[in-house]
Design a protein around this nucleic acid. Structure first.
Length: 590
RNA sequence: GGUGAUGUAGCUCAGUGGUAGAGCAGGGGACUCAUAAGCCCUUGGUCGCGUGUUCGACUCACGCCAUCACCA
């Protein structure tokens, strides 16, 4: 049994999840995690809502509420989205927990102790009216490059150049009229990233055989020339640095957000009653290939997850007071094994119209058309190699023409013949013909080929291989035509029974092969086949208690999950779960 | 401006230094167990543009254009 830690990008709790987010990180990680569970591995999949940062404060100000209220609203929406779509996090938490705050402050302390942080003065825009330093994006002024007079402090929308707010000509406060802005010096901590240069380069050197080339090339090029980076910010909503007399200084949101992979694993260990279990992942020996950490992200996050996060882990070495399993002079934290970053799912050409039932909101779509319709199409167009395009027509086509026609209909046509002609029990086969054996052999081989693709995080390819098997099964049934055979006397009836047994056995296998992609449908097929136990466990939300505040988390209970990544062992005589019914809803377009 | 990627049939995508592939859509057919789903046959492409290397390039090199992301 391997230990697989599936880390998923932390969504910013400032808006709902659209299909692009789902196809980018959440669905691929869930497919992968479900597959690894079926393989019998110990899987922990973690993530949470990123609750800090300026945009949430801005939104709270605008809505006359608190940052906490804003992020908690979206956090709950996210929880609902994951549950509806069946994204099975072992723990989905957020960054406003005591656990996360405490470990983030430890991160600061550890980096400081190990000589990776140093203080330095930085010039910043200060608001006299608000008596605080302003984030770059809240400053507006004339672009020094193109002269556009409404450039933001972080970037000019007209010429596209990135800016520093102090470069702006005639800077203004975007939120406060007639404010007086001054350039003042603020002391901040900077991260000596170049110090980890060698470690990072060495880390990236062994990845050629399995990292996606676009990810590896990008990371290597950036790692060639590393610069120090700001580690703190003047923020009102964030995690204060553990330094006396430093009010208003917080850890730069990015660094504590990536730390969430570690803090969520620690929280998972705590809430599952095994507080030391996180060490079995994060303190595993570097050469222990039975422990693997994966980071599922979108392409905009590649830098942070292939270079910078590694730098933090190298710099921290281990947590404060945590008994380190190796000498202090060696890097201790286990580094990510793979970072299968996806490109973007775009929807530029799609007309957005609610009256036509066209939505890009993942929760909305899943509620309207069912989670598996969304999961199936998003896997078909998953942007693994390049940007892909969402299209509503494509979505309908995939559901009606493939999920329903090739997989749902395969189960339906087979099981209903068994129901009507064989008393609702899997028929006893007689001698298997060459065609029978060939199809069964294909279905058994699929566990190898599909499994290899899934293990290498080539999910589209994996799904296409499964669909190929379903097509092969449909061809088999058409060629064998059991509905004809059964009309040709006792021998014919026996032969038809064998054909339907073979088909049912392959459907049984397909219900496992398809299950990482469309789990809800596959559970339903298995119920029709007469199985009493589910493939997967259950999701539930739970209020987790800490000393000063509670937080709502999503959990996963794998007890009772009976799914195994192995070919069908369907027993003749097994009774079906009832009269077969169509399991995939057809999407009717007016 | 720099870096990394992407650009192949109407759509979604495979692919290889040697006469262009699949699925879907479109067209035709045989069947009828099945949510008119499934099966068989079939029409579609000067492989972004240009130059070079080569006996031969969609595949290699260089340049350009377009799109995306990141960094300055």
């Amino acid at each position: 049994m391997d230990n697989i830690l599936v880390c998923v990008a932390w969504p910013y709790a400032n808006g709902d999840q659209h299909v692009g987010h789902i196809a980018g990180a959440y669905l691929p990680s869930d497919i992968f995690a479900r597959f690894q569970r079926l393989k019998g591995n110990r899987v922990v999949m973690v993530s949470g809502s990123d609750s800090h940062g300026t945009p949430i404060v801005v939104r709270a100000d605008k809505e006359g509420t608190t940052p906490r209220a804003v992020f908690e609203h979206f956090h709950e929406r996210f929880l609902q989205t994951w549950q509806t779509l069946g994204i099975t996090f072992d723990l989905y938490t957020h960054t406003d927990t005591e656990n996360h705050h405490a470990i983030a402050q430890q991160m600061f302390t550890r980096l400081q102790e190990n000589g990776y942080l140093y203080p330095a003065k930085q010039k910043q825009i200060f608001s006299v009216k608000q008596q605080k330093f302003l984030p770059d994006r809240l400053v507006e002024g004339t672009c020094p490059i193109c002269g556009y007079d409404k450039a933001r402090g972080d970037q000019c929308d007209t010429c596209g150049n990135l800016l520093d707010a102090i470069q702006l000509i005639n800077p203004r406060n975007r939120n406060v009229e007639n404010d007086t802005l001054e350039i003042r010096e603020s002391e901040h901590y900077f991260w000596d990233l170049p110090k980890s240069s060698e470690d990072i380069t060495h880390y990236l050197s062994g990845k050629d055989s399995y990292w996606r080339p676009q990810v590896l090339n990008f990371a290597r090029n950036f790692a060639k020339d590393l610069n120090p980076r700001a580690f703190t910010r003047d923020l009102t909503w964030g995690i204060p640095i553990p330094v006396p007399n430093s009010e208003g200084k917080c850890i730069y949101v990015w660094w504590e957000a990536v730390l969430g992979y570690l803090t969520a694993t620690v929280e998972w260990a705590k809430v599952t009653g095994q507080p030391e279990a996180w060490k079995e992942f994060w303190y595993a020996q570097p050469d222990d290939n039975r422990v693997k950490i994966y980071n599922f992200i979108g392409k905009d996050n590649i830098l942070f997850h292939t270079v910078l996060w590694q730098g933090i882990l190298f710099g921290m070495q281990h947590l404060v007071g945590a008994d380190a399993p190796r000498p202090d002079d060696a890097p201790i934290f286990k580094q990510p094994y793979d970072v299968p970053a996806n490109q973007y799912l775009n929807f530029g050409g799609q007309k957005f119209s609610k009256s036509l039932g066209v939505s890009l909101d993942a929760l909305d779509l899943a509620q309207k058309y069912g989670p598996d319709a969304v999961r199936f199409y998003l896997t078909k167009v998953m942007p693994e190699q390049r940007d892909a395009e969402w299209s509503f027509d494509g979505f309908v086509q995939a559901n009606n023409g493939e999920l329903l026609a090739k997989w749902g209909n395969l189960a339906q046509r087979t099981l209903s013949q068994i129901w009507k002609n064989f008393g609702g029990a899997i028929p006893q086969p007689s001698e298997l013909t060459e065609a029978d054996q060939a199809l069964i052999a294909s279905s058994e081989r699929a566990f190898e080929t599909v499994g290899e693709a899934l293990n290498n995080v080539r999910l589209r390819e994996a799904l296409n291989l499964v669909i190929e098997l379903a097509t092969e099964a449909n061809v088999y049934i058409d060629q064998q035509a059991p509905w004809k055979m059964i009309k040709t006397g006792d021998e014919g009836r026996a032969r038809a029974g064998t054909q339907l047994y073979v088909a049912a056995r392959v459907i049984d296998s397909l219900s496992v092969l398809f299950s990482p992609f469309v789990p809800h449908l596959c559970e339903a097929v298995r119920a029709q086949l007469g199985y009493a136990t589910p493939l997967f466990g259950k999701q539930y939300t739970q209020l987790e208690h800490e000393a000063t505040r509670d937080h709502l988390a999503l959990r996963y209970d794998g007890d009772g999950a009976a799914g195994r990544w192995q070919p069908s062992q369907l027993a003749p005589g097994q009774r079906l779960g009832g009269e077969p019914k169509g399991l995939v809803a057809k999407i009717e377009v007016k």
